Simulated assay, not measured.
Amino acid sequence: MTHTADHGALMDQVYRHQRRFYDVTRKYYLLGRDHLIDRMDVQPGQRVLEVACGTGRNLAAIKRRYPQAQLFGLDISEQMLLSARAKLGPGAALAKADACAFDPRALFGVVAFDHIVMSYSLSMIPDWQGALDEAFSHLAPGGTVHIVDFGDQAGLPRWFRRGLLAWLAKFHVTPRWTLPAEMARHVSGAEVRQAALYRGYTVYGTLTRRSVA
C-alpha cells in the first residue's frame, strides 16, 4: 500500500463514524473558519477549491456567502466525501485526491483556481509543506490561498496548550508551529499576509500569486 493509500485509509478509519457529528463538535475549537470565509471576496464566476474539504461545511458556507462562485472540493477520505456529497449535492464538484499531488484538469476539467481554502487541513497532512506548495502551484494569476489552522498558542496558558495537544493527538492532528515561516517562504512569488487570532489559538493567512505584468 502506498503512503497516500495508508493516509487515506487512516482518515477513513478515524472519520467513518465521526463524520456524522463532526460539524457539531468541531465548531467549538476550529476557530476562525468563518473569519476566513468573510474575507475571501469571491467575485461572481470565480473558482473556489477547498483542499481537504471534509464534510463540506466550509463549502456550504462559501456558497451561502458567495452564491455565484464555482465550488470544488477534494479530500483523501471517501468517508468524509460521503457527508460532503450529501450536504452539497450538485452545488460543488467533489473528488477523492491527495492534497500533496492532484491534477485539477483530470479531477474537475479546470486548470487553476481563483481561491484555494486550507482550513485546519495542514495540521492533518503529514507532508504539509508539500501540500502548501501544491495548492500554491494551482492558483491562477492574482489568485489566493486562504489558510486557517492552529496557532502557537503564545497568548494562552501553558496548561491549555498541553491539554490541546494531547486532545488533538487522539485525532492524528499536529499543529504546525512553523506555519507562519513556511508561508513567508513563498514571498518571492506571492504577497503574504498573516495574523494571529484569539490570543494565538489560530493563525490566519493568505498567499496571493502576483499577476503577470
Rank of each mutant, 00 (worst) to 15 (best):
G8L: 05
G8P: 06
L10M: 04
L10T: 01
M11C: 06
Q13K: 05
Y15M: 06
H17T: 05
R19I: 03
R19K: 14
F21T: 13
V24K: 07
K27Q: 06
Y28Q: 14
L30G: 11
L31I: 13
L31Y: 14
L31T: 13
L31N: 14
G32C: 09
D34Q: 15
D34V: 14
H35M: 07
L36M: 12
L36G: 07
I37T: 11
M40Q: 10
M40S: 11
M40V: 09
M40W: 10
D41C: 15
Q43H: 15
G45C: 05
G45L: 01
R47M: 06
V51A: 04
A52M: 14
C53A: 13
T55K: 13
T55E: 14
T55P: 12
G56R: 04
G56E: 13
R57G: 04
R57S: 08
N58P: 02
N58E: 04
L59N: 08
A60N: 01
A61S: 07
A61R: 13
I62G: 11
I62T: 14
R64Y: 03
R65I: 05
R65Y: 00
R65M: 11
Y66M: 14
P67Q: 05
P67Y: 08
Q68Y: 11
A69H: 05
A69M: 13
Q70A: 13
Q70D: 12
L71I: 11
L71F: 03
F72K: 12
F72G: 07
G73N: 03
G73I: 11
G73P: 07
L74G: 02
D75P: 00
D75R: 00
S77G: 04
E78Y: 05
E78K: 03
E78V: 00
Q79T: 04
M80E: 01
L81T: 03
L81G: 05
L82E: 15
A84Q: 03
R85T: 09
K87Q: 07
L88P: 12
G89F: 09
A95N: 10
K96E: 09
K96R: 14
A97W: 01
D98I: 00
D98R: 00
D98Y: 01
A99I: 04
C100I: 05
F102T: 06
F102L: 06
F102A: 07
F102M: 08
